[in-house]
Amino acid sequence: MMKIGYARVSTTGQNEAAQVDILSRHGAEELFIDKASGTSREGRDKLAEAIRFARKGDTLMVTRLDRLARSVSDLHAITQELQAKGVDLVVTEQHIDTSTPTGRLMFTMLGAIAEFETDLRKERQLEGIAKAKEEGRYKGRPVTVDSEAILAALAAGEKPIAVAKRFNVARSTVYRVVEQTHKSA
């Protein structure tokens, strides 16, 4: 019976050291670390590797449920895979152990709460953007294209693909500048 630790941080700028320390103190013999979003399982190769690595009687440990997944469906899919292999899940900082009925109940409840929090955060963000747009404070990404320079280069006889390379923009951007100029003329 082996204790397998899984840690995840969302970005490469974040540090997983605190999670690794906690998992090590709880006896993790093997560690798998992802630097990826928890909103889906996509791009989380170390999680897949940890699940493949686990054998019957092993325990997969994480520090918090949100390190494992951000949706109830992902949490359940992961635990079903683990259960099918005879592997338990322990969440160290939330005192969850899926080898017990109480642990399974807590797991389900906290997973639902985590998903609810993610949905609320998205909703608040969209409301904030809508309000900022309404107040004229949100106009999207600032324009970084020098339309006049692009038009001058085209007028001097440069081909659109050469202009795009020179100004480090997509060729479609060059055509869009030309189209906008014709519309406003």
Results as ranks from 00 to 15, higher is better:
163 V>H: 02
41 R>P: 00
104 R>S: 04
47 L>C: 02
107 F>D: 07
48 A>Y: 05
75 L>G: 15
159 K>R: 15
151 L>E: 04
169 V>H: 09
107 F>N: 07
146 D>T: 00
107 F>W: 10
99 S>C: 03
111 G>W: 12
126 L>G: 00
162 A>I: 05
110 L>M: 15
135 E>S: 03
135 E>W: 04
42 E>H: 12
113 I>D: 07
127 E>W: 09
159 K>A: 15
148 E>K: 14
81 E>D: 15
104 R>V: 00
133 K>T: 06
79 T>A: 14
106 M>C: 00
50 A>N: 14
154 L>Y: 04
163 V>L: 11
93 E>I: 01
156 A>F: 00
52 R>A: 13
142 P>I: 03
53 F>D: 00
119 D>N: 14
75 L>E: 10
72 V>T: 08
119 D>H: 15
56 K>N: 05
71 S>R: 10
102 T>K: 04
62 V>C: 07
139 K>E: 13
86 G>I: 08
154 L>E: 00
89 L>C: 12
68 L>V: 08
145 V>M: 03
45 D>E: 14
74 D>R: 04
75 L>T: 01
124 R>C: 00
90 V>Q: 06
52 R>H: 03
150 I>Q: 07
166 R>G: 01
110 L>H: 14
147 S>K: 09
57 G>K: 02
94 Q>A: 03
81 E>M: 15
40 S>G: 10
66 D>M: 13
69 A>P: 06
110 L>Q: 06
154 L>K: 03
65 L>D: 05
137 R>G: 15
78 I>F: 13
124 R>H: 06
143 V>M: 07
99 S>G: 11
88 D>N: 15
84 A>V: 11
93 E>H: 11
45 D>I: 04
109 M>R: 00
153 A>N: 06
121 R>S: 00
114 A>I: 08
51 I>D: 06
49 E>A: 15
87 V>I: 12
94 Q>R: 00
133 K>P: 05
139 K>N: 10
44 R>S: 11
83 Q>D: 14
103 G>T: 07
104 R>L: 13
130 A>R: 09
146 D>A: 02
102 T>N: 14
131 K>T: 15
98 T>S: 12
48 A>G: 06
41 R>I: 10
67 R>A: 11
64 R>H: 13
121 R>L: 11
66 D>I: 13
154 L>R: 01
103 G>P: 12
107 F>K: 08
130 A>V: 08
128 G>H: 11
43 G>Q: 00
110 L>C: 07
133 K>C: 03
61 M>T: 02
141 R>N: 01
118 T>L: 12
80 Q>I: 05
113 I>H: 05
42 E>V: 13
70 R>E: 05
138 Y>S: 01
168 N>V: 02
47 L>E: 10
48 A>K: 09
69 A>V: 11
42 E>A: 09
132 A>I: 05
